[in-house]
Computed example of a mutant assay.
Amino acid sequence: MPAVFPDWSPYQDLDSAARAYLRDPEVALDSLFGVLRGAAVLTFTLERFVNEVNGVWQEVVVCDGSRLVLWHGEDVAPGDGPVGAMTSSLRVVPLSTVTEVGCRRRLSRTPGGKVQVDSIDVYLLLSSVDDAPVPPGVGEDESRSVLRHDALRFGKTLDDGGAGQIARLEDFSRVVASLVGRPTL
């Protein structure tokens, strides 16, 4: 049975949304604000779920107009550390490295015939290269390298987040898309 968390979508500011939604908002906000250092938060998105191995997985992505600041917190798997241990990581991605923004909405019709968005998938393709496994049939000793661009992916559904979070993720993708490729100051 999926875990149900409070809805963060009504909160327009990062602090309130994180405190309403994340299990560890102080850890996330301390990390994020330590990097943002007063920069304006133009848009953000949040994610949280529980998996069967590690427990709670949390993520915040903030855009300040010139970069994406990503915080990720995850419970440590049983046996990999003391009970209650978690990892906290931070990643900063300059918007100049985002080469493509994609947003795919799945639309359905209500019984009354009204069109609604019932899921959204957003990806940000980066110019950096991700480690890629060697494809089947290609020996590791061959000189041909396998390259795959790094990407950031986000998704929401009516069951996982609801209409409000779908709309907020779509807004996030639009704001980031409007900034990609523009000269930065």
Rank of each mutant, 00 (worst) to 15 (best):
M1V: 10
M1C: 09
F5C: 09
D7K: 09
D7P: 03
W8M: 01
P10I: 07
P10W: 01
Y11G: 03
Q12L: 10
D13E: 10
L22W: 02
A28C: 12
L32V: 02
F33I: 06
V35M: 10
V35F: 14
V35T: 08
L36E: 02
R37E: 09
R37M: 11
R37F: 07
G38E: 02
G38W: 06
G38T: 04
A40P: 10
L42R: 15
T43V: 12
F44M: 04
E47D: 14
E47K: 02
E47Y: 04
F49G: 11
N51I: 07
N51C: 13
E52Y: 09
V53I: 06
G55Q: 04
V56A: 03
V56N: 02
E59G: 11
E59R: 13
E59W: 01
E59L: 07
V62H: 01
V62S: 01
V62R: 00
C63Q: 00
G65R: 05
S66L: 05
R67Q: 14
R67K: 12
R67H: 04
L68W: 06
L70F: 02
L70I: 15
L70S: 14
W71Q: 00
H72Q: 13
G73V: 09
E74T: 04
E74D: 05
D75T: 08
D75I: 05
A77D: 08
A77W: 03
P82Y: 05
V83P: 10
G84N: 07
A85P: 12
T87S: 09
T87R: 10
T87K: 06
L90W: 10
R91F: 06
P94Q: 13
L95G: 00
T97Y: 04
T97L: 10
V98N: 03
V98C: 08
G102E: 06
C103E: 15
R104A: 13
S108N: 08
R109L: 11
R109Y: 08
T110H: 12
P111N: 09
P111E: 11
P111Q: 08
G112Q: 13
G112Y: 05
G113H: 12
G113I: 05
Q116I: 15
Q116K: 15
V117A: 11
D118S: 05
S119Y: 02
S119K: 08
D121F: 02
V122T: 06
L126V: 06
S127A: 14
S127M: 07
V129I: 15
A132F: 12
A132E: 14
P135L: 10
P135S: 11
V138T: 09
V138C: 01
G139Y: 00
D141L: 14
E142F: 15
S143N: 07
S143C: 03
R144H: 00
V146M: 09
V146G: 11
L147T: 06
L147C: 08
R148A: 08
R148Q: 11
L152E: 10
F154M: 07
G155N: 13
K156T: 02
T157F: 05
L158P: 04
L158Q: 04
L158M: 12
D160F: 03
D160N: 07
D160A: 07
G161T: 01
G164A: 03
G164R: 11
I166K: 09
A167N: 08
E170S: 11
D171W: 11
F172R: 13
S173Q: 08
R174A: 15
R174Q: 15
R174I: 12
V175I: 14
V176S: 04
V176A: 01
A177D: 12
L179T: 02
T184N: 08
T184H: 13
